[in-house]
Design a protein around this nucleic acid. Structure first.
Lengths: 362, 362
DNA sequence: CTTTAGCACTCGGAAGACGAGAGTGCCAGC
DNA sequence: GCTGGCACTCTCGTCTTCCGAGTGCTAAAG
């Protein structure tokens, strides 16, 4: 059934007002603020119908109306006006992003913090899982008991490991192994590195000291790690400032759920497509998030990878403001990280590098 | 003034009972449980004196007694019996630590999670800040537009960075720079890398493309990062389950304070010396932690570095159990990481390596 | 001098009573 | 179909009352 234009206006007014005040909104308020030329009694009739249709809910008989998840969904899909950021806001975001360019390696987590601060909600950042292969090996001989493994992955991150040996090796042996690994292991994904291959390499290297298996183990672990994706949350505690999370138990449930990166990585699967995804309450696959909403924006992380940046908050989230901010941040990140044309100076160049070889754990 | 043996027993009983129940404890309870052969009236007299001396507090005139910070301090220093872990507990910890050996790089944060789970409080891990120098440079030529910087630091961690260039370089140029940096920059700390040195190197390398400054900037940033130390917190939300943090605002203050690693790094300065440090409420330098307690154990992280692992909780913390658990975990970490004799097999060797080159951000 | 029993007193917290206020549903009239 | 009016409902804050735990004090006993 189609909803009349007036009903839409009223629904939008209820959602806007409720987002602002966190209080159930009554007919009188709407009659005064929404600027429709009709009285509160008329609004009441409309409200009753919207309630019957499932877009609104009543906490109790004589309270105002509160949007239902269905109401929020309708609001997000059709009513919400795409909020424009003010010039000050965009400038502030740009300034922060540019400032962060100085600290390249922390860009992702810092972008999360930025999102959290701007929106006032806990922020999460996800990097899409992706099967990687090793593009190139280097073994650096340090001294007779020490060498470094450096691996350049197909997603252009660099991983390394310092290995101390309880016995001595010669530089030549290290170089030989380096060549053999470059010849035999590059371009392979985790599954393709078989025990057969490893033992063949071991024989070819005349390696009787287990070096081959150390390097292979490092490779396998590195590849499996890169395939898991990475996820972090910042600002969890800001959830406590939301009226709907004043109940410590409720807040604890959500926060501890978010603290497990396993959970986070499964989160996006619940979302729709598009540049900004909104997951409203019960739409969440996870039981623990059934009365929270998640808004995520996707950005181009370069090298064909995409990342997600988002926030978690109560159903009563300021969807339009949050979506606008996240989208702007995501665009900024895409610009900084993505595969477009290089900006002037070293910015782009440096940003594609990475001081760290690996992502932080959560 | 010296406190009588009976007063000590009574004080210990109050603290133990209050830790257990989180309720003010009355004279009757103590008379029944503490097993001193005297009546509640006698206890009352003693309690009144202990209160006058500042070891106990009364929430209001006709409530039981609650330990004051001074009382906790006395308890921790003199009364608390060093709790022994049960065999099951030590075995569980050992199992977890050994299991974690498989995932070497996450050992520190995982140890924090272990501590958090065992104690039920938010856990923090700190690695002591320490000025590092670069022990060795390697520049790996990947292709005409790309090279990798690998730096082995004096604390035996490896850092790296992938650099994309908007112009071409030759392999020889990269090799020359590598040699120059090894000659000129190894052994220097952050302060010793001066603009003069950098421009001298730039001239020596006949570098007109700014490569030198890129490498120098990476070096300086890496060293400054390693000097900052690292800090992470896990399980913040478990604080919400403590009765004294049911107030979301109070919990929020503490958690958001803990979320800033700057703050965490300054934390230990408030503590005493010894293998397990206890900082009780107002003893904390930080205003935000004035009604929280911090217990930290120190461990040998190898290479002359020490790390800290600890938990944050309410004043009413189960100090003896927490201290015992933390100490046991710290001992386990020292065993795994520290400079003792190598255990059988590859365990030690691998553990001293590091899949990641850098510490996670918080 | 210390310990004990007894007792009046105090105070916080739970439970109930009550009024105010906000908001609804419905109806009759325009 | 809209509007004003009105009775009704339900929550919330406040106030009162009541109960009990625990105290401090005193006087007697050891």
């Amino acid at each position: 059934m189609e909803i009349s234009a007036r009903k839409k206006k009223i629904l939008a007014a209820v959602v806007d007002e409720y987002i602002r005040t966190a209080e159930p909104v009554g007919s009188k308020t709407i009659a005064e603020t929404a600027g429709l030329g009709c009285s509160s009694a008329t609004i009441r009739n409309e409200l009753a119908e919207l309630t019957a249709l499932g877009y609104l809910e009543q906490p109790h008989t004589s309270a105002g109306r509160v949007p239902s998840p269905k109401g929020y969904r309708f609001y997000v899909n059709e009513l919400m006006e795409r909020q424009k950021l003010s010039v000050e806001e965009t400038e502030a975001i740009n300034a922060r992003l540019n400032e962060k360019m100085e600290q390249l390696d922390r860009l992702m987590t810092d972008a999360g913090k930025l999102a959290g601060q701007l929106t006032g909600y806990p922020a999460l950042t996800l990097s899409a899982p992706r099967a990687a292969a090793v593009k190139r090996f280097d073994l650096l001989y340090v001294d007779a008991n020490t060498f470094i493994i450096v691996a350049l992955l197909s997603n252009n991150t660099v991983k390394n490991k310092l290995v101390h040996l309880p016995f001595s090796v010669e530089q030549g042996q290290i170089q030989k192994l380096s060549a053999l690994f470059n010849a035999g292991f590059t371009g392979l994904t985790e599954e393709e590195i078989t025990p057969v291959l490893i033992s063949a390499t071991e024989r070819a290297a005349r390696d009787t000291m287990g070096l081959t298996s150390i390097i292979a183990a490092f490779t396998i672990e590195t590849l499996s790690r890169s395939r898991e994706g990475a996820a972090y949350v910042t600002g969890e505690s800001s959830l406590l400032q939301q009226p709907e999370f004043r109940d410590p138990d409720k807040a604890h449930r959500v926060i501890s759920y978010l603290s497990d990166s396993e959970h986070l990585l499964r989160l996006p699967s619940g979302g729709g497509q598009g540049d900004v995804r909104v997951i409203i309450g019960p739409e969440n696959l996870a039981e623990e998030l059934r009365d929270s909403s998640v808004v995520m924006a996707s950005y181009d992380a370069g090298e064909g990878q995409r990342g997600l940046i988002g926030v978690v908050g109560p159903l009563r989230m300021d969807y339009s403001a949050v979506a606008a901010k996240l989208q702007y941040i995501a665009e900024g990140l895409s610009r900084l990280l993505g595969g477009g044309e290089a900006p002037a100076g070293f910015g782009k160049m440096i940003l594609k590098g990475d001081v760290k070889s690996d992502e932080p754990d959560e």
